[in-house]
Amino acid sequence: MTSINPQNGFYQNSRHSLEKHPSEDIQDKIVGAILFCCALVSVLTTFGIVVIIFQVAFEFFQKVSLAQFFLDTKWTPLFAEQHFGIWPLINGTFLTTVIAMAVAIPLGLSSAIYLSEYAQPKVAAILRPAVELLAGIPTVVYGYFALLFVTPLLRNFIPLEIFNALSAGLMMGIMITPTVGSISLDAIRSVPRSLREGAYALGITKLEAIFKVVLPAALSGITASIILGISRAVGETMTVLIAAGQQPKLTVNFAESVETMTAYMAQISGGDSPRGSLNFQTLYAVGAVLFMITLILNIVSYWISNRFKEKYE
């Protein structure tokens, strides 16, 4: 409903159309409260996990010194002669992660460049979901595929133990490729077309434009995708548990069996160690180290994303 002001001739909205009905205010408050509770649940869950992990880890360090944990080079908490050096588990984790990223980075970036710069729209619309389907395959399937197919295949060419870091790392790399490729693709597509056209106007080739203009402009998102892929590789459990083995050792030989932090945690959580025992508490000590590693990786990813972020109008 509108009315005409005879003094200035402008149409004015009636007061009733500008004011909210009391029931609408109540609905807005209810929706806001529900959304706040949903956000609070995730925050409290994270807080609870951190408190429990570090509480039990603190009890562990009351019995095992930090020197034994960080300076010893043996990890045998389940043996009669116990050693609690975390470095063999860290070594196995990073050895498999390096192999995985050596596969995921070139494959992920190559697929992102192709889908963004070379593929026809119809082809890209088909290939992108097909590539991302790899992320939906259960990790236990990757583990058994590495153990029963990849390892026997590789043993025809190079000497490998049945459980080894190479097969586990290769399958993790395939598994992480969609993560690196999808985020990198979004970062590359966010680069304005005007930058590409300006590069072409200078007479450089399409390949030169990609590597000298597009990729540097998308560096922030690409770096974030790589660090996110590293975080996922560090936290992967079933693939390394099945394919890499359970032999904690300090080695850079990818043909040998190794044990990662997550594989050890899965081993302890199987129920063989009594709850509250020292062996059981090692689960939380290793989990605390894993938490700190992933936290540092996420902080680095956030810093790099903001440090090299490009803004375009």
Score class of each variant (00 low, 15 high):
residue 16 H to T: 04
residue 159 P to C: 10
residue 190 S to P: 10
residue 266 A to C: 11
residue 66 L to E: 11
residue 306 N to L: 12
residue 66 L to C: 10
residue 36 F to M: 13
residue 107 L to K: 00
residue 17 S to A: 13
residue 118 Y to H: 06
residue 141 V to T: 04
residue 198 G to F: 01
residue 223 T to F: 13
residue 301 S to W: 01
residue 157 F to L: 11
residue 214 V to F: 05
residue 122 K to Q: 10
residue 74 K to P: 06
residue 49 I to Y: 11
residue 29 K to F: 14
residue 78 L to R: 01
residue 103 V to I: 10
residue 35 L to P: 03
residue 13 N to S: 09
residue 288 A to E: 14
residue 148 L to H: 01
residue 166 L to W: 06
residue 307 R to S: 14
residue 277 S to Y: 12
residue 298 N to K: 01
residue 226 I to N: 07
residue 53 I to E: 13
residue 1 M to W: 00
residue 127 L to W: 03
residue 163 F to W: 14
residue 208 E to V: 00
residue 224 A to E: 07
residue 188 I to P: 11
residue 16 H to F: 05
residue 248 P to I: 01
residue 260 T to R: 01
residue 151 T to M: 12
residue 45 T to L: 15
residue 241 L to K: 00
residue 72 D to S: 10
residue 130 A to Q: 05
residue 180 V to N: 12
residue 160 L to V: 02
residue 36 F to L: 15
residue 98 V to T: 07
residue 159 P to N: 09
residue 299 I to D: 15
residue 115 L to V: 03
residue 207 L to E: 15
residue 65 S to F: 08
residue 154 L to A: 08
residue 287 G to T: 04
residue 270 G to K: 01
residue 165 A to N: 11
residue 276 G to T: 08
residue 5 N to W: 02
residue 115 L to A: 09
residue 159 P to H: 08
residue 106 P to A: 05
residue 69 F to N: 07
residue 148 L to N: 13
residue 132 E to F: 01
residue 161 E to C: 07
residue 173 G to F: 03
residue 174 I to V: 15
residue 234 V to L: 11
residue 200 Y to P: 05
residue 279 N to M: 12
residue 180 V to T: 02
residue 303 W to H: 03
residue 45 T to K: 00
residue 132 E to Q: 03
residue 251 T to L: 07
residue 9 G to D: 09
residue 240 V to R: 03
residue 261 M to N: 07
residue 136 G to A: 12
residue 25 D to G: 13
residue 228 L to Y: 02
residue 184 S to F: 08
residue 112 A to S: 12
residue 282 T to Y: 11
residue 169 G to S: 04
residue 24 E to A: 10
residue 45 T to F: 15
residue 63 K to C: 10
residue 53 I to T: 11
residue 188 I to Y: 06
residue 106 P to K: 00
residue 153 L to I: 09
residue 180 V to Q: 05
residue 53 I to A: 07
residue 220 S to C: 09
residue 269 S to I: 07
residue 313 E to R: 03
residue 146 A to H: 04
residue 28 D to S: 09
residue 129 P to S: 02
residue 84 F to V: 06
residue 118 Y to G: 02
residue 221 G to F: 07
residue 221 G to I: 01
residue 290 L to S: 13
residue 258 V to S: 08
residue 298 N to P: 08
residue 124 A to R: 01
residue 89 L to N: 04
residue 127 L to E: 06
residue 209 A to V: 00
residue 80 A to T: 11
residue 122 K to F: 10
residue 80 A to F: 12
residue 104 A to E: 12
residue 272 D to P: 06
residue 80 A to C: 03
residue 297 L to V: 04
residue 212 K to A: 09
residue 56 V to A: 04
residue 140 V to M: 06
residue 34 I to W: 08
residue 242 I to W: 08
residue 128 R to W: 00
residue 86 I to Q: 08
residue 217 A to M: 02
residue 48 G to D: 14
residue 154 L to I: 11
residue 262 T to H: 09
residue 125 A to F: 03
residue 272 D to V: 09
residue 282 T to C: 14
residue 218 A to T: 03
residue 286 V to H: 05
residue 166 L to N: 08
residue 305 S to E: 15
residue 285 A to G: 12
residue 64 V to Y: 08
residue 289 V to L: 14
residue 226 I to Y: 02
residue 51 V to L: 14
